[in-house]
Nucleic acid binder design. Structure first.
Length: 595
RNA sequence: GGGGAUGUAGCUCAGUUUGGUUAGAGCGCCGGCCUGUCACGCCGGAGGCCGCGGGUUCGAGUCCCGUCAUUCCCGCCA
């Protein structure tokens, strides 16, 4: 018989009754009855009950074995009598009566519970991640992650893509997020950067004549964390296609995502093709470029209704005269809600730093509510028509400068729907946000800057760059959204050096800037580059959605905490002086350093 | 960098509103009892810098100031 096991802890059934088996695993739980002792033995595959009588020579040893110790037992598989069957366990019809017992590795007193599902503090979980990961829910998440990645690889390969690795030690890129830097020993004073994404490499792969590239790519960005943003590093399904239009990219990635989501979830999924919403429309109707379409409420502009001469609502009128707009969120069938429903929303708005959340209630053909009395018949008609509301509905108003109004209306839309409990459940709602603007105005400097990726192809190409107002130019740039979570940005790239120079010059860069900052790409594109485009959905976020976890750390094996510290490995850590010396580095104000 | 929440036993938390005897519970741990449990049960015990520092007070887990840590959000994330 094998040194450690003949079976795993999850596979034995009543068909094995009478067999002598050997099992290894962790002591999940013990129930000591003095004359009789039960051990729940757990491994990756399941849990099985081991039973020992007190006339067994191993009884005392079993009693003394601490939880989470690793043991090897052998014994006979015994059928449990009908009244002793445990239906919660797949192995619940049987148990193993031990004939031999070996402690492979005994456990000290645990710093946190392992068996059972407990709410535990993040810190203790991360510091003892190897224990945390033993818990069935974490085993399940990690397995899901593995299967998702494997499935993605299969789908991409069968769609004609090839996986290539790109460098981890590369050059710092001037655009985008803060880089993680790595000092070079052989080149004193110079630094590598970890890639924020393999963006330039994948475009170089296209310029190198490969047709369809993908990679489960590690990406590194030194930015602050969020619940859905792991600090430091994350993974993307990075992909790029030669001779591709925007629709080609959509038609390629949509089936991958929808098949993936239906493979790993029972929830309803948006059918292909996913709806496409322009950036402009998204900002108006949803107040964000990542609309959560599970929420049926929409925003619309009703500025016009408040301009009417008979409207006496000065608070809005004065702001409108200064250039503000009024956005409305219509909430259907809320007339019977208690006053507290509206008061709570108003209080919430004030917590958000707003003056409040004004509303009207349509009832008996009239507009009631705090703002109702200021409105004229005509203006109410305009509002009803624009918001498509009727008696029984309420309309909430937000008046502010366009950007602020959009953003707060977006928040209010979600908050109102949450309070109404009308956000659709158990469903994945996908959409594309398309037609992002190529440029935007930097409000602090009044300069025109790239609004997203400077390598996106402007819609209309050179002609648009030469003739249009830069702020009106759209880019072949798109995001894919699921339930309000941005899974990825992508773009059709600018593969023409002449259009690139023009595009950069509009944002205030000279052709020398372009060459020095993005020399490799610029150079490569001088010698014949295919039109190309791609996208890079975030793997961690996909797994998070499919695992239905609210926090991305639940689907990452060894995540860092919010301060970008690995509590298990104690990273980042101090290094020896001779290491610094070898790298020609000196650390300033060392007394300020923590620990 | 800014804002909110939290910080009490190894773990999860109560106690803080209204300052007042020796700071409690469950799990875990140690000891005892228990032959059918499966979150086993029962009895007993150990375990506390109430995050840290300062202040107010006769007296501070509780009030005030500061600070640190964890977390969520804003900024940031082409």
């Amino acid at each position: 018989m094998h040194l450690y096991r003949s079976h795993n802890c999850g596979e034995l059934t009543s068909s094995n009754v009478g067999n002598t088996v050997k099992l290894s695993g962790w002591v999940d739980r013990k129930r000591d009855h003095g004359g009789l002792l039960f051990i729940d033995l757990r491994d990756h595959f399941g849990v099985i009950q081991i039973v020992v009588d007190n006339d067994n020579k191993f009884f005392k040893l079993c009693e003394d074995t601490r939880l989470e110790s690793v043991i090897t037992v052998s014994g006979k598989v015994v059928k449990r009598s009908d009244d002793l069957i445990n239906k919660k366990l797949s192995t619940g019809e049987i148990e193993v009566s031990i004939e031999n017992y070996i402690i492979e590795s005994s456990s000290e007193i645990l710093p946190m519970p392992v068996s059972g599902e407990h709410d535990l503090g993040e810190e203790v979980r991360l510091r003892n991640r190897f224990l945390d990961l033993r818990r069935p829910s974490m085993q399940k998440n990690m397995l899901l992650r593995s299967k998702i990645i494997s499935s993605i690889r299969n789908k991409m390969i069968s769609a004609g893509f090839h996986e290539f690795q790109t460098p981890i030690l590369t050059a710092s890129s001037p655009e985008g997020a803060r880089d993680f830097l790595v000092p070079s020993r052989l080149n004193p004073g110079k630094f590598y950067a970890l890639p924020q994404a393999p963006q330039q490499f994948k475009q170089l792969i296209m310029a190198s004549g490969f047709d369809r590239y993908f990679q489960i790519a590690p990406c590194f960005r030194d930015e602050d964390a969020r619940a859905d943003r792991s600090p430091g590093e994350f993974y993307q399904l990075d992909m790029e296609m030669a001779f591709a239009t925007q629709d080609d990219v959509f038609n390629t990635i949509e089936p991958v995502l929808s098949e993936l989501f239906s493979e790993f979830s029972d929830w309803k999924i948006t059918s292909n093709p996913f709806p496409k919403i322009t950036f402009k429309e998204a900002m108006l109707k949803y107040g964000t470029d990542k609309p959560d379409l599970r929420n049926p409420l929409e925003i619309c502009d009703v500025t016009e209704a408040f301009l009417h001469e008979k409207v006496t609502f000065k608070a809005f009128k004065e702001q409108i005269n200064k250039g503000a707009v009024v956005r409305a969120v219509a909430a259907f069938n809320v007339v019977d809600r208690p006053r507290s429903f509206f008061d709570k929303l108003n209080a919430w708005a004030q917590e958000q730093g707003q003056p409040g959340l004004g509303y009207i209630l349509l009832s008996d053909g009239e507009a009631k509510g705090p703002i109702g009395k200021f409105l004229s018949k005509e203006s109410i008609e305009i509002i009803k028509k624009k918001t498509e509301t009727k008696d029984g509905d309420a309309i909430f108003f937000i008046c502010n400068k366009v950007k602020e109004a959009e953003s707060f209306a977006g928040k209010a839309r979600m908050k109102i729907a949450e309070d109404m409990d009308i956000i659709e459940k158990n469903v994945f709602k996908f959409c594309w946000t398309v037609d992002f603007p190529m440029y935007e105005l930097d409000e602090s400097t009044n300069n025109i800057i790239f609004s997203h990726n400077p390598f996106s192809m402007p819609q209309g190409g050179m002609e648009a760059l030469e003739n249009k107002d830069p702020l009106d130019i759209l880019a072949w740039q798109y995001d894919i959204i699921c339930n309000g979570v941005e899974l990825s940005s992508g773009a059709i790239r600018n593969h023409r050096t002449d259009i690139m120079e023009k595009a950069f010059s509009i944002a205030g860069y000279t052709s020398e800037d372009l060459k020095s900052r993005f020399g490799a790409l610029y150079n490569a594109f001088k010698y014949g580059a295919p039109p190309h485009g791609g996208i890079a959905p975030g793997i961690d976020r996909i797994v998070m959605l499919l695992a239905n976890e609210p926090n991305i750390r639940e689907v990452i094996m060894f995540p860092m905490n919010q301060q970008a510290q690995d509590l298990l490995m104690d990273a980042p850590s101090k290094i020896e002086n001779n290491q610094l010396k070898e790298l020609s580095l000196k650390v300033n104000s060392i007394d300020k350093l923590k620990k």
